[in-house]
């Protein structure tokens, strides 16, 4: 029933290592299932198991080839070495969106907060590490050019695994740049008439109600 990693009756047919432990798994198991199956230590970064939470970050070594990915989206294969990465450390860039008062000076604020973004050296490190195939490098360039709406659009499917942040030699933190772009776009420019109309209607109703209460007193 519940344990997805249970294939009772069959012989394991894939041999790999996870966090230094030799693991025998079955074809078709994801790296998360393989880790559970073997009781691999220090596997605390698992959440959704369907590729949307960005927690199950792993480093993968096949021979001399090293890549990163999401463990719940990668299947067990022979001889692969898997290391579950520790949670990312707190971001170095700080801002609170409520501090932004004026959309006209947003580019100045962006440059204060993310000064490194204009120093991209186009190494593609972010692009190659992104498990969602996002054109991260281009997103960063758009942001540095002040094109926040388009930049944010690039990051639409971002799951905040922050693997691009780890890859970036200039410490640009592309994941947080992307989110900044998306957030300021909504914060300053999303002004839907149907919502605004209803909010005003409700405000008046409330006001009417308090006035009526006052009259009664």
């Amino acid at each position: 029933m519940s344990t997805t990693a249970n294939k009772s009756g069959q012989q394991p047919d894939v041999a790999l290592t996870i966090n230094g432990l030799a693991v025998n798994a079955h074809t078709g198991m994801t790296l998360v299932e393989a880790a559970w199956h073997a009781g691999a230590p220090r596997v605390t970064g698992v959440g959704c198991m369907e590729g949307v939470c960005g927690s199950c970050r792993v480093m993968l070594r096949r021979g001399t080839n090293v890549t990163v990915g999401l463990a719940c989206q990668t299947f067990a294969e022979n001889n692969i070495e898997v290391v579950f990465l520790p949670p990312a450390s707190a971001p170095r860039h700080h801002y609170e969106i409520d501090d932004f008062k004026d959309a006209w000076d947003i580019h100045a604020r962006f440059q204060d907060i993310f000064p490194e973004a204009s120093r991209c050296r186009h190494c593609h490190g972010c692009d190659t590490s992104c498990p969602k195939g996002i054109t991260v490098e281009n997103g960063v360039a758009l942001a540095a050019a002040g094109r926040y709406r388009e930049a944010g659009g690039t990051f639409f499917e971002c799951v905040m695994c922050e693997l691009c942040d780890v890859a970036c030699p200039e410490l640009i933190a592309p994941a947080h740049v992307g989110l900044f772009c998306r957030r300021v776009t909504a914060h300053f420019h999303l002004r839907p008439p149907n919502l605004i109309y209803r909010l005003e209607e409700l405000r008046r109703e409330r006001q009417g109600a308090t006035l009526a209460e006052r009259d009664e007193e």
Binding site: D98, R183, A186, H187, P192
Partner: peptide
């Protein structure tokens, strides 16, 4: 709640005229 979420920076699908 929708207003608060937008203020935090959440995007929603819009119609061509800008309604949610």
């Amino acid at each position: 709640v929708l207003r608060w979420l937008i203020r935090q920076g959440m995007q929603f699908e819009q119609t061509p005229s800008g309604d949610l």
